[in-house]
Nucleic acid binder design. Sequence first.
DNA 1: AATGAATGAGTGTTCATTCAT
DNA 2: AATGAATGAACACTCATTCAT
Lengths: 198, 198, 198, 198
Amino acid sequence: MIFNEDAVKPRKSARQARSAATVEVILEAAARILEKAGPSGFTTNAIADRAGVSVGSLYQYFPNKDAITRALIRRELEALETAVNAIDRTQTAPAPLDCFIDRAVAQQLRRPSLAKVLEVEEDRLGANSDRGPVRARIATLLSGILADAGHPAGPDVVQDVIALIATLVNAAASRNEDDATSLRSRVRLVIDARLKAL
Amino acid sequence: MIFNEDAVKPRKSARQARSAATVEVILEAAARILEKAGPSGFTTNAIADRAGVSVGSLYQYFPNKDAITRALIRRELEALETAVNAIDRTQTAPAPLDCFIDRAVAQQLRRPSLAKVLEVEEDRLGANSDRGPVRARIATLLSGILADAGHPAGPDVVQDVIALIATLVNAAASRNEDDATSLRSRVRLVIDARLKAL
Amino acid sequence: MIFNEDAVKPRKSARQARSAATVEVILEAAARILEKAGPSGFTTNAIADRAGVSVGSLYQYFPNKDAITRALIRRELEALETAVNAIDRTQTAPAPLDCFIDRAVAQQLRRPSLAKVLEVEEDRLGANSDRGPVRARIATLLSGILADAGHPAGPDVVQDVIALIATLVNAAASRNEDDATSLRSRVRLVIDARLKAL
Amino acid sequence: MIFNEDAVKPRKSARQARSAATVEVILEAAARILEKAGPSGFTTNAIADRAGVSVGSLYQYFPNKDAITRALIRRELEALETAVNAIDRTQTAPAPLDCFIDRAVAQQLRRPSLAKVLEVEEDRLGANSDRGPVRARIATLLSGILADAGHPAGPDVVQDVIALIATLVNAAASRNEDDATSLRSRVRLVIDARLKAL
DNA sequence: AATGAATGAGTGTTCATTCAT
DNA sequence: AATGAATGAACACTCATTCAT
């Protein structure tokens, strides 16, 4: 019903391309609503409206509202994943860890209010499902980077590091700070302290 | 806790006492629902049910649902305020700052999931109103303690410190950590790093 | 239960006097609310509040809310009845009919918005009960006056006459007219025309 | 009635036609409830039930309950407007004024109890908004007819005339009178008297 | 008798989801 | 595939009425 993949896939199927585009349009509409109106304005009709599609179509691409939220979370996390995956872990300067921090800060800083709302939604949804494989892959990567840097760390440390980045960026964003450089160095110092603990 | 009932008016009017008790029952019911079911289960009927009163009674004590949430936020913050207000700022060991951290950690650790949900709700409500005077008083106190400790700090630093405590405690709680001592020292280290930044 | 009339009624029973006073206070409170807030503000709690009694007391004097409305209607109609009963039907100038009209206009003009709302309420309640004996007595009186004036009239005419008075006064009141004299003569003319029909 | 569908767009979109039909079904259901049960039975659920649609649908066509009431008032007034607009103001017999009266009587006589309840509702809603443009247009037309008939009249007279018609028809209807001819002549006489006053 | 806290059925309204077209 | 009208359970809130004190 969802995908009718024939053996031959000559043209990436104009249909699939269009589908992917529609999905993207819906997700971006959802993101903007979440940013501007918060969870209370986040209704399926509002999303469909802003995306320029009908609710019916929306439900053709997503089985229910939570699926949209999940896809949005996934999209944002994959953006982060892509960024940190591109780090050359053999380089010495800047150190891969600093690089990771910088990119994570940059990602969180891109759409801070969206990131914050999604974090809350992730909690709400997380009660039922696994924490999400993307987060796991990012954690694994960070774990490796930490080990390389001489800070072999358990999952608790990794979790703390990621949480600290988010917290400091959110706080800065809520004050409308614009000096990303000072924010970055602040985050590095705090994370360094966390890594030295225990 | 709030009333300082002295002998003068012995029976603070059984009615008023009962009223205060009912308010407390409702707030505790609301707290438990928020902890266990999250915002989605937080309905006025559910609160009334769990409190063992009727919806009508609930509305005799609170003008609307948000007022319950606000009262809950206030209750939790006042518990923290009471704790940190009791700190003797002239003592040298443990340093008042460490004392503040310990008590804030202890408060957040008491009902971590409640604290987290309330933080979100505070954001949602905060869009309209002032950030709440209790938070402001706590911030002022912390600001004074920091100055005494040789870390004169602007409101941004105070905000960061409070956010960092909440983050680290929440992370620890979500892992079901039970070693409060190690958590405390971790928090101290991280905050120390934040205070040295800039 | 309501009245315990013993054979001897030496002191009109301070209790009964007080009761009657309370009833009056409640009715006046109800009247004022109906005038100022209309039917939507007409709640038992609002009435009790304004009357300075508790809802419980209110229900000691009236079995339910509609009974208050009915008593109010009765009170206003009895005021009219008293006024028109005092007419000397043997006098020639002013003619008893003119006198009746003048007094009815004066009564409707005293609290026009109350009269209008009560009329509506009367309709609503009237669906269930008889039209009320006070109205019947007033109709009988008017009928007699009309006969004396050489206009023997059936109940339909009487009904029309009373309705016409109310309508013209209400319309005048809604325009904040203040010339009662011109209103009176207008009403007389219209009623005269109605009496000549058929 | 409202749409002037010419050949250009033959199918006025079956959807729009269905929408208009649904609106009409809802309004008729609302009218019948108001007639039979009065304002107290006039609930959105009752309206939806009787209309054979869900509450949700009802709210797709009307933003809130008052909007339904307003639409109903408008519908009835527009029926009257249509009727009196069709009067040929140059004709001599029957005189346009008599014609106006006859049509207004006929309209009020069609659904007298509905007209009466709507009048009350109009008062209630009117506190907030303008008296409604339809009423204004009808008043203007009547004003012109009166002027043509040699009775130049201010808005107060126009208001009285319309109120008198409604009153006499309502009274007749409440007695279940069936002789429309005698009612009409009665109304004419009364209005004639009103026009001569002052 | 008087009080007013308590009750809970009932009201207007929203919104995720379905399905006929 | 796409549409958007239709659905109805669920929600926040009100208010006539009762009853323990």
